[in-house]
Simulated scan of single mutants.
Amino acid sequence: MSILVTGGGTAGYRTWHQQSGAMEPTYPEGSDVTVKPIDGSGVRRGDVVLFSARDWGADSVFMMRVIAVGDDQVVIDEPGRVKVNGKILREPYLFKSGPYFAPPVEVTVPEGRLFLLGDHRVAAADSRAHLSENSGTIARSAVVGMAVDHASVPSPDRLWMWVGAAMAAVGLIAAAVATTVRRRRTGVIQRI
């Protein structure tokens, strides 16, 4: 299971510490993950989300990849190939662990729910391990965040740099206006 522990935050984003191998190689055990707080309404297939696992009987937050959304049909064959709505998924992010055999899965995802899998399929206790509870799905409303590339996070340093630049520009404009007003007053006084 991907159990995460919260860390510090930047500009509303959070840092989570990945404590399992379920999302390897994308997020190795022990790595820090930058998370954008979101609700589940805008989640799409392929997103890596953090969610409350209460639907699975756990009082923790886990991280998994969204494979399917409401009304999608998911079929996983014995060798582990995943089809969504009849199309085989290209999954370059998967952990290369050699042959993987598991019981086949065939699920239609209920509306308002998500079917989730780990990138390290052998190590992940994901939707496949919880098929008896809502076909292994979790509610969209259980989503608390989405993993994002750390480089895309707005830095408070960059924010303050822009604020400083804006303040400097305002100061220069004010100085130019004051100089112009002073010159005009001086010119008016000399003409009299």
Rank of each mutant, 00 (worst) to 15 (best):
T15P: 08
T180R: 14
L117G: 06
D71H: 14
A11M: 13
E91W: 03
D149V: 08
A175P: 04
P92M: 02
V181N: 07
L50M: 06
G171S: 14
H150K: 11
G21M: 06
R140M: 09
P25H: 06
R90A: 15
G30K: 09
A151Y: 10
G136W: 05
Y13H: 06
G46D: 10
Y100S: 10
V35E: 00
G118N: 00
T10D: 11
S31R: 05
R113H: 12
Y13Q: 00
W56C: 03
P28L: 07
V66Q: 04
P92D: 04
T10P: 08
P154Y: 03
S60E: 15
S41R: 12
L159V: 09
V148F: 03
V143S: 02
S135G: 13
S132L: 11
A129M: 00
A142E: 04
A165E: 02
D72N: 05
V153S: 06
V66I: 01
F51L: 12
F62H: 15
A165L: 09
V170G: 11
G118F: 01
M1A: 14
L131Y: 01
T180P: 07
V107N: 02
V49F: 08
P92R: 02
A166S: 12
D157A: 15
G136V: 06
P110M: 01
G30H: 07
R191F: 09
A176L: 09
P79K: 00
S41W: 11
G118Q: 00
T186M: 09
S97N: 14
R54Y: 15
R44L: 12
A175R: 08
A68N: 10
K83I: 07
P156D: 07
L172C: 14
F115V: 08
L4H: 10
A174R: 07
L116M: 13
G40E: 00
L117T: 00
I189V: 15
D71K: 13
A178V: 12
S41Y: 13
R65I: 01
D59S: 12
V143W: 02
R182H: 11
G9I: 02
A123G: 03
S20D: 08
H150V: 13
G30Q: 09
M161A: 15
P154N: 00
E29Q: 15
V109D: 00
P79D: 01
V35H: 05
R140L: 10
R65H: 05
G9R: 03
D55F: 03
